[in-house]
Amino acid sequence: MTKTVLEVKNLWVEYPARRGVVQAVRGVSFDLCQGETLAFIGESGSGKTTLGLALVRLLPKSARVRQGNILFYQNGRVQDVLALSQEDLRQFRWRDCAMVFQGAQNSFNPVLRVESQFYDTARAHGMTGTAHVKQRAIDLLRMVQLDPNRVFRSFPHELSGGMRQRVLIALGLLLQPQVIILDEPTTALDILTQRSIIEVLRKLKKELDFSLIFISHDLSLAAELADRVATVYAGTIVEIGGVYDIFERARHPYTQALTHSVPTVTGDLRDLTSIPGSPPDLIVLPPGCAFHPRCPFATQRCKEQEPPLEPVGEGQFAACWNWREAMNKT
């Protein structure tokens, strides 16, 4: 069977703010297998990005990891990311887990050429020998369908947004990390560029063996790329399961509402519904299930008790007291 490369156990992240404590990630647990693509979907402000940053410990200084474990498995070795020393952490970043950020427009130092940024990364991880690094960089740039001769010597501002995003993906693969986190990799790109990025990612996944964590609010992209999908609401996973189960047989009312709020190619436009209300305030969360004020199936119990993730199908879990009702309704 496939082996687990990443295991997150009961992770809590919060930001102290003037009004109170922002609970950005509340008890998230999941695991990621070798070669698997896991997509996190949810509205803005649901804590997806904080989750991604926490995995490589790049949270802003003000953030606090209250509890939890982030375990990386590699060659039979386990690394607890939260317990790494500064130097080990530096080595761990990018070599074991690379993160491609949203808005790659500004991901490159504007005063350095693309090549120096490749060399910088290699040198920071003890890869010496320019020729070797250059060869790998050029291969990777070709893999992301860029012209290496032009791009490698360019300054970031000489490249378009889509090109920069692809360069960043190539840079992410430079050290052959086991896991790559893509945080909104296609935001701020036009639809055709988005498409080519997705194609590039698919091709890379086929050619190179790495696991992918894909954070997005774009359901259609998640549907195309992911093997498994996790729906995030108010800082916690409310449903997780195989991509077909999530899109075809969602059990959680929030996942159902999400999938019904985007148009499908074949579906009728009348089927489109929006989710009433707005995302919850992460400082003052509603008691019980955080989704109950917007949920059509909410009962008294939902207002009082927070539901745990429980199995609702094969490899599918949902955190809802009334998932059976929600299932029958659709």
Binding site: V56, L58, W94, M99, F101, N106, S107, D120, A124
Partner: peptide, 24 residues
Amino acid sequence: DYVTVARARGLKDSRIMTSYVGRN
């Protein structure tokens, strides 16, 4: 963003301070 990305890339703090932060 590029400073955060530089950290994510595991660059040494001294390198980030001079070439990424200081120079810009």
